[in-house]
Every structure is written in C-alpha cells, then in structure tokens.
C-alpha cells in the first residue's frame, strides 16, 4: 500500500510537470502503466480526478487502445508477433505451441502469475520471422523447439 502511494505520487508528479490537460490523457496513461504496470480502476479514477475529466472518458480511452491493460500481467510477458511476415512463416503455430505448453489462451496469464501470453502486430524484425518477445527481449526464427527453450530460460527463475 505504502509502495502504491509512492507510485501514485510519482504519477502525480509527472502530471504536474507536463501541466497535463485532458489532451495529454494518453501520455498520462502511458506513464501510469509504466509505473504501475497496469491500469486498475483506482488509477483511472485518480487520473480522471487530476485531469478534471469524467472517469467515463478515461475508461473509454483505456479500453479502446490495445496497449493499455486493466489486468495485472504476469512476471514475464510473452509476445508472439502475429504480423503478416511472421504469420506467413508460421507464427500461429508458435502461438499454439505456447498455448498448449502453458495451458492458457492468448491474452491470459498463468495461475502462478509467471507468464502472460499475448500477441502483437509486427515488431519490425521481419527478417527474423517468426518473432517472439519476452519482456522486450527478442527471439527470432522461432520454431516449436525454441518455444521449449524460451520457456525453460524463464521457468527456472
């Protein structure tokens, strides 16, 4: 809780520094998600209050953009690129392999909170297709076999 207060203070500080108005909502949400890793109701209400805008507007914006999440994510976020270049090189099979192996669907988090499986569209590393990112680290030329290797790398931790 104490920790949360600090995070809210940090967010508040940011809002003040950039003199945020309603037009900076998206920038503020980005910062909030950066600080808190997700955007639960309290955060959205906090932002609405600070920017003096209706919370319904904040909610409308948060739910519109796929980058924002209201769910707490796992420790490791596995992103399988489903951009065209990756798709034509079999990214859907990679996704399936992760789903089978982790027992969760795309967009879900494992019950132990360790892995979140999600997809994204094109990271621009089409030369390495299909591409998987784990917390920003990129694995190129993924195969069913590398799925296992990738998971092993993080499961131990």
């Amino acid at each position: 809780m104490e920790n949360d207060k600090k995070k809210f203070d940090e967010l508040d500080e940011y809002i003040k520094t950039i003199h945020a108005t309603e037009h900076e909502l998206i920038a503020v949400l980005h910062r909030a998600q950066h600080i808190l890793s997700y955007l639960p109701r309290e955060v959205q209400e906090f932002i609405a209050d600070r920017l003096q805008i209706p919370v319904s507007k904040v909610y409308g914006v948060v739910t519109f953009y796929s980058f924002f999440t209201m769910e707490k994510k796992g420790k490791y976020v596995i992103n399988v690129c489903l951009g065209t270049a990756c798709f034509v090189r079999g990214a859907d099979k990679i996704m399936k392999a992760f789903e089978d192996r982790l027992g969760i669907k795309n967009g879900e988090t494992t019950p132990d909170g360790k892995f979140t499986l999600s997809s994204l569209r094109c990271v621009g590393a089409c030369g390495l297709a299909p591409v998987v990112q784990v917390n920003g680290k990129t694995y190129g030329n993924a195969t069913i076999e590398t799925v296992e290797q990738i998971l092993k790398e993080y499961e131990g931790e």
Partner: peptide, 19 residues
C-alpha cells in the same frame, strides 16, 4: 453528466457507465 461512454472497440464496443 458524462456517465455513459463508449468502451472497448470494434465488434466488442458497447455503451455503458465506466467499468
């Protein structure tokens, strides 16, 4: 009053109060 809003997007869009 700003109670009702569009939320989510695409086929999943709906109208309702926040949350």
């Amino acid at each position: 009053c700003n109670v009702l809003t569009f939320s989510h997007r695409g086929f999943k869009t709906f109208v309702g109060p926040a949350f």
